[in-house]
Amino acid sequence: MSSRSEQLGIDKAYLLRRIASLERGASASPRDRREVDEAQVLVESHAAPTLDLHQLSGKWRMLYTTARDVIPLVRANTLPSFLPQPLRVGPIFQEFDDRGGVRNVIEAEALLPPGRGTRLTFQVEARYQRRGPRSLGLRFVAAGVPHLEPSASLRAFLAPALAPRGWWTHRLLLAAQQAHIRVPLVPPPILDAFSAQQGEYLLSYLDDTMLIGRTKAGGGTFIFSREPDIGDRLLEQESRSLGPISQR
């Protein structure tokens, strides 16, 4: 009989294989989503009763989502070739630090006008705190688009995926119009009274390599893998270039 750790490895490998061809959820059919959810539940059954926040710290790459606000982003790369391609969406990350900060980051390339693609990084900053054994409360703090003023079509794609609708979306779009500007998302006192909790995030599974989150706002699931830092990548590249160590 397999040990619990071995079974966890089997369940995680199956989940990763199941989502590998779904283009981060963009091409998932209803049947695909059901099968992914079943595989996801198997992994979640191994979750610790209480979230270890120390494991959360780091950079996480999004592998798959069902969130209604994010699916239009990942579908941008799957439009038929005869349709206008406003942007090409690259990696999507969440970055947590051990001081209660989190950044939602999208790397993209604007493709309008044709032939003049411009790379950009779009990000929203938030603060998080524990709300339950495996849930976090999120409070959005600021948004910015470093080094670029994106087009209207790009803003239309990006804004709903990273911040709440309404007043905060307006502030987010304002940030997107002003290169090098970091715009606060903290609402005025009259609005703050109605928004003590701007988002809730259930971390249904977390270990050193995989993060699965479920959100109430947007009604979606997210599956992430931990992104190795630059030191890890350089060490891995150096090891490959040296080849196997001979036995003496």
Rank of each mutant, 00 (worst) to 15 (best):
R4D: 09
S5Q: 14
G9R: 15
K12P: 06
A13M: 15
E23L: 14
R31V: 06
R31K: 11
R33H: 08
T50C: 02
T50F: 02
D52E: 08
D52G: 00
L53E: 13
H54Q: 14
L63M: 10
I71F: 12
P80V: 05
S81K: 08
F82D: 01
R88T: 09
F96H: 04
F96Q: 02
R103P: 07
R103A: 12
N104R: 09
V105H: 08
E107P: 00
L111I: 03
L111K: 13
L111S: 04
R116K: 13
F122T: 05
V124C: 07
A126E: 02
Y128Q: 00
Q129T: 01
L138W: 10
A143N: 05
A143D: 04
P146K: 03
H147Y: 15
L148C: 13
A152G: 07
S153W: 13
R155H: 14
A156M: 08
P160A: 01
L162G: 00
R165T: 04
R165A: 12
W167G: 01
T169W: 09
H170K: 11
L172F: 11
Q178M: 09
R182C: 04
V183K: 04
L185P: 01
P189R: 03
I190D: 11
L191D: 06
S195L: 02
L203V: 00
Y205D: 01
T209N: 08
K216R: 11
I223W: 06
R226F: 14
E227K: 06
L242G: 09
I245G: 13
Q247A: 07
